[in-house]
Structure formats: structure tokens, C-alpha cells
Design a protein around this nucleic acid. Structure first.
Lengths: 244, 244, 244, 244
DNA sequence: GTGGTCTAGACCACA
DNA sequence: GTGGTCTAGACCACT
């Protein structure tokens, strides 16, 4: 008697949704930042290998979401706007999904500590300067942030570098499946977490340095441990912020 | 100057491809085994929430691949056939993709040991008997296998139980993303590895027992370690088999 | 500017209709005659390479048409009944379709005289006795008919032999396309013409003898001419009968 | 004991096969020529009175055969491609089927000479200018051809006009069954014969003129004779070409 | 009561 | 306005 309980519904994803996802992810990852312009429609269409119609469908959603502003004519294009997270809203959202937050962090611990271990074991020399540079720039971003008015700009800068660092480690592991898993782990809940982040990252970069050192020393256990500690610290920060 | 190098081509996935994947995965996971019938077209369509046409497109591929046989009329349906792995072919295939094999195992180590640790920490009492039962049945499958002619029947049985055990651990972690990642990790290379597997698994079940014990004792470190050792042993078995 | 005026509607023909046609044609051609039984359902299904369901669908139509009687049990089967043409009805039918009658005869003249010519040129010795035998038997059928009560039985006998003779000539040409064309030409209007036929065929067989002689002598022109004359005589008989 | 040997297997013909045949025939008849587009899917569906799905099934085959190329979007559609006869292959094909070639020509002689005779007898005045025009255009096509590089372009033109002429005669007979038979006779072997045709048709049009004259003069015998001579000349040309 | 095929219509991606 | 895909439902042929 075959049991076919695990055949769940199929959901086909429209091309414009995939486009939308990819553009959003690029913006989240700092590829396109507030004040930047997205590439012209035609270029996007070519890069993504879809038609302009499909790009437009995605862009229209982004405009409705208020993440970009569309202007025509010379000097026009798709202007990336300052994200308008509402921290209060984000907090409510996160409190509602407490278990999901926990699971998202659990998942990150598993895949990112695994990635760190593998990166330590398999990294090439060329991987190190890139990661080191990111750590340096995060330091700068934090310092710049301190002296400033609390607007979100420098936070976004830090977040971008942070993402690049974590994904860079996954990439240094040389394992595509891991890169994919890390990407999935991070893209989840990115918006609400990003919203409350930032006031809190003063010592995050110390962790980054530790992780990097372990990778440089090819010490897999240490890399995994440091990564675990780092992610868990972020987790506790978030959780205590939610309890406040 | 924004860098948008990471905008890659979009590929929309047709519904029938998703259906195909899902059915294949179910067959690989032992949900549908040689001699079974898949659910009728109409039922599949309903379960997957697609039209019969879409199901048929997928089923046609499976038939061309020789994985099922289609018969009409009362008593007809989609008969799952004995997979026709050609071990020699599988070996060539695996040797060609040595790096992929390594990466596939690396990935499994990361996500499955992580899953085992979390399972140890978060398992519910109800999870244990299911896992224990699978271990018992794997024992039986191995014993049955020893006394017989080396045909693949009991191997398939073992493989199915094995899959169920590993996925069961992921499920006990309570983390959907992990279940998903474990599934991905296992479905990859399933066919070629399955082809050469089986003559070699006598002590695999000892590992399973160890892992289970650690989970029972809520010893996360021990569970992760046992799982890592288990997967690496399989890896070494495969790799030495490939070197022969 | 392409002109696609000649793309007409497609009509798909259901399997049971094809079965029906073929059984009808066999009855018309004398393969199954009043008083005979059709082969059992199972045999028909096998011969026609369709399922019994499909045979039943066809047989049901024949029963409704009154051409067979279906009886169950031992000694049962499909009993072929005496056809119940109504000559008056047939006459009305033909008068209504005067042009079609003309065209049907025109077509027969073209293909059957061509077939006769080719038969004369290409016949093998073995073809002759078969045709000669048919001529002899048609003679007998006519004589039997004269002394009898006017029932349609002997007419049917003559018609069957007549059909066999004409198709035999086409077959002797060795050209499959021609056999097909002759068959098409004859199957058309078979029922209504058959209904009024029979009182009139006394000298038809003289023509047959002439045609056969020409074929025996390998005289293509003569064969074609005799066939043309023969068919046109039938045509005139019918037309004058319709004018009466 | 009834003899039911002539009950052969039924083969139900799928609607999409019928569609395929009909489109192919239209292309062979020059209704759709290289560089043309077939009518849009939706129009074809309506013309053929089938669903778009069914049309697509047929179109997919044509695309696989390389007879059309499919493009989407405005200005897209089904582009009819230059047929890629390989003359050497065609020659081999024809030599293999020598008897079929003979039979195909025999059949054409029968039905087309019959059609010519009937056309002479039944033609309407309006039929003449159409046929005359085709003869004139064939003359032009031949002249154009002579002065040029031997490419196949004008040959295709001639063939199309030739087909139109022969079918036009059948049509002038007013007999649908004959038109059908002529069409069948010509569609057979069309591709391989077309491949080797064309360098050889200089005097074919003289025959056409003769046939037309006989039809104009209502001289059935002469029309039939001229047609017979014409087709036999083509037959001999082909046969001697095959012997070379 | 199973698969096989077609239909009618919708929505989408493309140009 | 083109082809590409899916849907929902019908009817059919098979066993």
C-alpha cells in the first residue's frame, strides 16, 4: 500500500516573479543601493534573458512597493529609494513569527558554520584578501556610523558588507550547494531583521575578524565555532530586542 | 557605478517539470517502489493541484525514461519499474564527476550533522519510536539480504529505510528549511550512488544506532559527530569503490 | 499573400465508426450474407485490433439499423438479416441526388476502365481462372434468378459476384491505389443502387465476358473500352429506371 | 462458412495527424511556400475546426521535420522553410521503390487522363482563363529559369504552377471524387520526385498547352491522350534519370 | 475505472 | 497580435 502523502501542490512561478525576486535580492545584497539607478529596462531584459514586458511587470511591483521610483526621459530610469522599513511594524511582524525566527537562525547556524569549516579547509589564498577587505570596510562603516545622526544609510552599508562577507565565506568553501543554502538562509526574513538591526552591531566585526583568522589558519573547527557564536550572538541581540 | 554582475538569466520552470521532479523524488525516496502503481492520473492531478494534462506531460517523460510502464484499462495505471541502473555506467558517471561527488558528500555532512544536532536538542518523545523502528527494519533488511542471492531487492528496501531514517531525523529537528536542504542533498546523485550501493552497508546500521542513541540522550554534539562519521564512511566506501 | 482557402475542417473518425464501416462493407461485399453469423465479438475485436467495447458500439448500430439480430447464449451471436431496402425510398433518394449519381458513374468509368486496361497489360496467368469462375457463377445466378419468385436472394448473389469481379480486375492490375479507388467508387451509393438493381442485369454478364476476353488477350484498349461500355450501360439502365 | 479474411485492423487516426496531413499537403501543393507564413495558430484552429492544442501537436511535428520555423511575438508565426531535399538521398529512395514509382505513375495516368477527358466534356467557359494563365506563367517560370544560375527557386515556382494546372483540370471535371483521387496520386512521392525534377521540364509546358487546347475544344479523347502522353514523358524522364 | 485525446478558454511571455 | 502553457471538463477506448 503505497503512501503518497508527500505529494504536495505544485506552484508554478511566473517569470516576472522570478525577476522580481532577483532584483529584490540584488537590492538587499547591496548591489543596488539607495540613490543608484537600476540598469535600463533593455539591459535588465538582456541580463535576465527575458522580455522587456516581463521586466516591466516586476518593476511595476517594485514601484508600488515604494522601493524604486520610475522616471521617464533623459536622466530617468529606475531610481532605488531609501527603504522605508517601519521598525515598529517589523517588530510586530517578528514577534508574531517567533518560531520562524528561531528556525531561521538555527538554519543559518547549521549551514554557515558548515560553510565556514569547509572554507577553512578548502580556501585558496586568493580568497583571503577579499574577505579581509570586507572586514576593514565594515570597521569603517561602523565608525562612520557612530558619528552620525542615526539615519539608516550607514547601516545599509554595513549590512551590505556583512552579506558579502558571509556569502564570500560560502563561496570560499567551493561548494555551490552551500552557497545556495546560505543565500536561502539569509534572504529569509531579511527585511524585518534589517529594520531593527544596526544600533547593535558594534562588536559584530570582532567576530568577523575571528572567523577570518580561523579560515586563514585553516582551522575548520575554530571557524565553525566562531561562526556559530557570531550568529547566535545576533540571534540573542534580536531576541532581547524583541523582549524589550 | 553599481556592479550588477550577479543578475543571471531567469529560467521559468514549467509546471510539468515541477511535477516530474516531485514524482521522481517520491520514487527515489521509496514512496513508490518497483511493482507499485503511481496514483491514477486524476488523483495525481488533484494532489499536485494541476490539470491532468500537466501530469501527463510529466508521466510521458518518466515512461520514455523507462522508469514506469503505462497501461490502460481497469487494473491499468502507472506501474513503477525496477530501475535499470547499469553499475558500470554509474561508475563511469561518478568518476567523471569526482568533484561533484565530493561536494555532494560535503553538503550532506553539513546539513545532516546539523540536523542531527538540532534533532537531539529539539526532538519530541514521539519521534523516537519511529526512528527506532526504522533501525530495526534496516537490521532485518540487511539480514535478509545476506542470506540471499545478491539481487537488488533487499538493497532497495534498505535504501528506502535509510532515506526514511535520515529524513526522519531532519524532521525531528522541526526545521523545515533543514528538511528541505537534507532532501536536496540526498536527491542529488541518488541514482548513480544507488547503483553501486548495497553490497557494502553491513555496518551502516551500527552508525544509525549510535546516532539514534545520541538523539535519544539529547546529546547534540554526539549526534552531529556520529552523523558526520556515518556519512564520511559512506563517502570513503564509495571513493574506494571508484578507485578499484 | 498566401491563399489558404483549401484548408477545410478536420473530422476525426471514432474507432467504432471505422469498425462499423468495415463490417458494413464486408456485408455489402457478400463476405457476410443473410443467414450467416458475424464472427463472435471476441474474434471481431481481435481481427480488427480494437477492444470488445468498440465492437459492441458498432454492432449496436447495425442492430438498430435492422441489418443484424443479436442473440445471446448458445447458438447465439450476430445473425445477418435480409436487407430491407425499400425500393421506392431508394428511388426517391437517387432522384434527389441526380448529379451525384452521374458523378459516381463518371468516377467508376475513369478508374475501372483504367484498371481494366492495366489488368490487361499486367495480369498474371493465375488471375484468369478466378475471374472466369466468377463469370460462370454470375451466369448461374442469373439463371437461378429467372426461375424464381423475385425475392432478393439471388440478386444479392449476383451483386456479390459482380463486386468480386470488378475488384478482381482492379487487383489484377497490381496497383494498390487503383484497388482503393475502385473500392471507393463502388462503395458509394451502394445501398440505393443495390435496391433497384437486379431486374435488369440479364445482359450484364455478356459485358463481363467481353472484358475478361480482352484481359485474357492482353488487349488494354479493348478492356478499357468494354469496361466503359459496361458501366455506362448500367448507368443508362439506372437513369432510365429513374425516369420511369 | 463465411470468409472474413478481409477484416483488417482498424487504425483510428488522431485529429492532429489529420491536421498534419492537411497542412503538409497544402505546402506541397504550393499553397504555402518557402518564405510564407502559415496562418496563425488560432486561425488554423478555426479553419480546421479543431482546438489550438490539436493544431500545435501537428505544428510541432512540422518543426521537428524542419519544414517550418516557429517564432513568437508580433511578426512571428510559422515560417515555411525551404525544403531540404537531398537529391542524392531522393535518388536512392526512388531506386529502392522502383515498383512504387511505376504504380504511382500508372495511377496518375488513369485518374488524370480520365479527369482531362471529363474536363473537356464538362468544363465551363470560366475554367479556361485560369488554366491558360497557369500555362503562361509556367512559360515565364521556365524562361526565368534558363537564364539563371540553376538554383531551385524557379523550379519550385514551376512545380507549384504545375500542380495547380493538374488540379485545376481535375476541378474542371466537376467531379469531387476525381479531384480527391488526383490529389492523392500527386501527393504520393511528391518529395523525392520534386527533388530531382526541374532541370528537365523544358518541353513539359508544350504538353500542357496541348492538353489545354483539347479541353478548350471539348475533345475528350484528345485531352485524355495528351495527358497520358504528358505523364508518361515525365515518367520516362524520371526513369532514365534513375538509370543514369 | 483506467489512460488517451480533444476542446474551449484563459493567462502569459514575446516582439 | 503572436506562440507557449495550463486548466477544467468532456468523451472515448481499453481491460
Amino acid at each position: 500500500m503505497p503512501d503518497h502523502s508527500n505529494l504536495g501542490p505544485i506552484r508554478q512561478i511566473a517569470a516576472h516573479e522570478l525577476v522580481l525576486d532577483q532584483i529584490r535580492r540584488s537590492m538587499d545584497a547591496g548591489q543596488f543601493r539607495p540613490g543608484d539607478r537600476l540598469p535600463p529596462e533593455r539591459d535588465l531584459a538582456e541580463m535576465l534573458d527575458v522580455s522587456r514586458t516581463t521586466v516591466r511587470a516586476a518593476v511595476a511591483v517594485l514601484e508600488r512597493e515604494g522601493r524604486i521610483s520610475v522616471r521617464r526621459g533623459r536622466g530617468g530610469g529606475f531610481l532605488v529609494l531609501e527603504p522605508t522599513y517601519d521598525p515598529a511594524e517589523a517588530r510586530r511582524e517578528l514577534k508574531r513569527n517567533k518560531v520562524e525566527v528561531r528556525d531561521a537562525f538555527d538554519f543559518r547556524v547549521v549551514v554557515e558554520s558548515g560553510a565556514a569549516r569547509l572554507a577553512a579547509e578548502r580556501r585558496k589564498a586568493a580568497d583571503l584578501p577579499k574577505l579581509a577587505d570586507l572586514v576593514t570596510r565594515m570597521d569603517d562603516a561602523i565608525k562612520d556610523g557612530r558619528s552620525d545622526d542615526g539615519s539608516t544609510a550607514h547601516v545599509t552599508e554595513f549590512q551590505i558588507l556583512d552579506s558579502a562577507f558571509h556569502l564570500g565565506i560560502a563561496a570560499a568553501s567551493g561548494n555551490e550547494q552551500l552557497v545556495d543554502a546560505v543565500t536561502r538562509g539569509r534572504s529569509r526574513m531579511w527585511l524585518p531583521v534589517g529594520a531593527i538591526f544596526g544600533h547593535i552591531e558594534d562588536n559584530a566585526n570582532d567576530h568577523h575578524a575571528e572567523i577570518l583568522a580561523a579560515i586563514r589558519n585553516k582551522d575548520g573547527d575554530q571557524a565553525a565555532e566562531a561562526m556559530t557564536a557570531h550568529i547566535n550572538e545576533t540571534r540573542h541581540t534580536i531576541e532581547s530586542w524583541l523582549r524589550r
